[in-house]
């Protein structure tokens, strides 16, 4: 069933069509929420909020091809807001935080589409192939980061044998290197 058919069926009240969307996107949405450093409880809130917003906005999604992007932009926004609130950075009401967000807007219209990277199993395999070709400490850092999602910076740094203060900058450099490798692959293909 195409996204258009699925959306039309859900709009017509078909629970099975809605379930199809939920089953397809929940795993990736969860991974995105967790990538913002959210606890399991906060990530569950971010994903749940994303589905509730889709329920509000489903009838306004005119381009079904952008449904994945819409969901990803929304979960990123919710995860970012919840993360800031949990860290005590913005102790104000969520709706005020949401600023320009309006149900029915197409948030990702002109932005790059990171959703595709997360949604495609092929992309995931390609990423790990690139990681396995990286030198240390990046290879170990990514393996550890992926397999210990709840580990704190102290723990991760300790297991990598580096001072806690070095973990963040090292991770940033490794992510930049991975990005460069992907860009080079794309240019070569």
């Amino acid at each position: 069933m195409s996204d258009q058919h699925t959306i039309d069926a859900a709009l017509a009240g078909d629970q099975a069509a809605w379930d199809t969307l939920v089953n397809r996107f929940s795993g990736p949405l969860w991974s995105v929420a967790r990538a913002y450093g959210l606890s399991a409880a906060d990530a569950a809130d971010a994903v749940q909020g994303t589905w509730l917003r889709l329920l509000e906005s489903l009838h306004t999604i005119r381009d079904p091809g952008r449904l994945g992007s819409w969901l990803f932009t929304t979960v990123r926004r919710e995860a970012s807001l919840i993360g800031r609130r949990s860290r005590g950075e913005r102790p104000v009401a969520d709706p005020a935080d949401a600023g320009g967000f309006r149900p029915g807007s197409s948030p990702a219209e002109d932005a790059p589409d990171p959703a595709l990277l997360v949604l495609s199993a092929d992309e995931g395999r390609r990423l790990w192939l690139a990681v396995e070709a990286m030198q240390e400490p990046c290879r170990s850092l990514f393996r550890l980061m992926a397999t210990a999602p709840d580990a704190g910076v102290h723990q991760l740094a300790g297991r990598l044998g580096m001072p806690s203060g070095s973990y963040g900058p090292t991770r940033g450099r490794c992510l930049n290197r991975l990005r460069t490798m992907l860009t080079a692959q794309e240019a070569a293909s």
């Binding site: 990538a35 990277l117 790990w128």
Partner: peptide, 25 residues
């Protein structure tokens, strides 16, 4: 387009399969 840090991390973790979405979500 440049891919942001969170999307890279999410894609790596999703493919690693070690933090699946809990069933209640």
């Amino acid at each position: 387009a440049a891919i942001d840090d969170e999307s890279l991390i999410a894609a790596l973790r999703l493919a690693a399969g070690r933090d699946p979405v809990p069933g209640h979500v």
